[in-house]
Amino acid sequence: MQINVLYFASLRDSAKISSELVQTKAKTVDELFEFLNDKYSFEIDKDLLRVAVNEEYKSFNTPLTNNDIIVFIPPVAGG
């Protein structure tokens, strides 16, 4: 399965890229996160992250579908 992952803010600083196509056998968002966290050692605590699947907030146990766009969302700070 192919997943499009976008990185913003502190996660982009850790990954040193703003997006990538990930080939994965991960079945859920959570499994994908663990795979990426092993790869990039994100500095932010997982408990502080939310996740967007195809531009909507979802839970970490959401199943992945081919070509999903996944963004792990660090605490937001608009305004």
């Binding site: 803010a9 967007a52 660090p74 937001v76 700070a77 608009g78």
Partner: peptide
């Protein structure tokens, strides 16, 4: 809204601002 803010300081290294309580 997914917007993030990085503050640049006069005498310190820039940092991303996080409302950590929002994450909780």
């Amino acid at each position: 809204v997914p917007i993030w803010k990085k503050e640049h300081y006069v005498n310190e290294q820039a940092q991303w601002i996080a409302c950590h309580r929002c994450g909780e």
